[in-house]
């Protein structure tokens, strides 16, 4: 099972700033291993973010997103105490969901 995400969410003037660091190899599918075989692509393909259970952002990613992906976005109309939930799924079907409270 993948390592937990690090999520920071803070509210200022009615806008919530969310920063997420995910733990993932994000293998491009272009690289060859020591014996010359192509290392198959393995990457987070979809990310969903919700505020208090309501979806606000969906990300569709290819393997060009860097290893241990970073995502930052903003939500209008949030406040301290709200719940931010982030979920991802990779191209092998592995998934992870983490949650934090807006500060």
């Amino acid at each position: 099972m993948a390592d937990p995400m690090k999520i920071r969410a803070s509210a200022k003037d009615g806008v919530v700033d969310v920063r997420v660091l995910m733990a993932h190899e994000m293998e491009t599918g272009q690289r060859k291993d020591a014996s010359g075989n192509v290392v198959p692509a393995w990457f987070i393909s979809d990310v969903t973010a919700s505020l208090n259970g309501k979806e606000v952002l969906k990300a569709h990613w290819g393997p060009a997103i860097s290893k241990n992906p970073y995502l930052q976005f903003k939500i209008n109309g949030g406040k301290a105490g709200d719940k931010v939930t982030v979920s991802w799924v990779d191209n092998k079907g592995d998934k992870r969901t983490d949650e934090t409270t807006v500060s």
């Binding site: 806008v15 491009t28 505020l51 309501k54 979806e55 606000v56 952002l57 969906k58 990300a59 569709h60 990613w61 290819g62 060009a64 997103i65 860097s66 992906p69 970073y70 995502l71 930052q72 976005f73 903003k74 939500i75 209008n76 109309g77 949030g78």
Partner: peptide, 22 residues
């Protein structure tokens, strides 16, 4: 492949995203 990422902004999302790419 040129496409790195696409984002659907649903209700509440501000039109501003930051990511890191190869």
């Amino acid at each position: 492949n040129a496409l790195a990422a696409a984002y659907d902004l649903l209700e509440g999302a501000a039109p501003e995203v930051n990511m890191r790419v190869k």
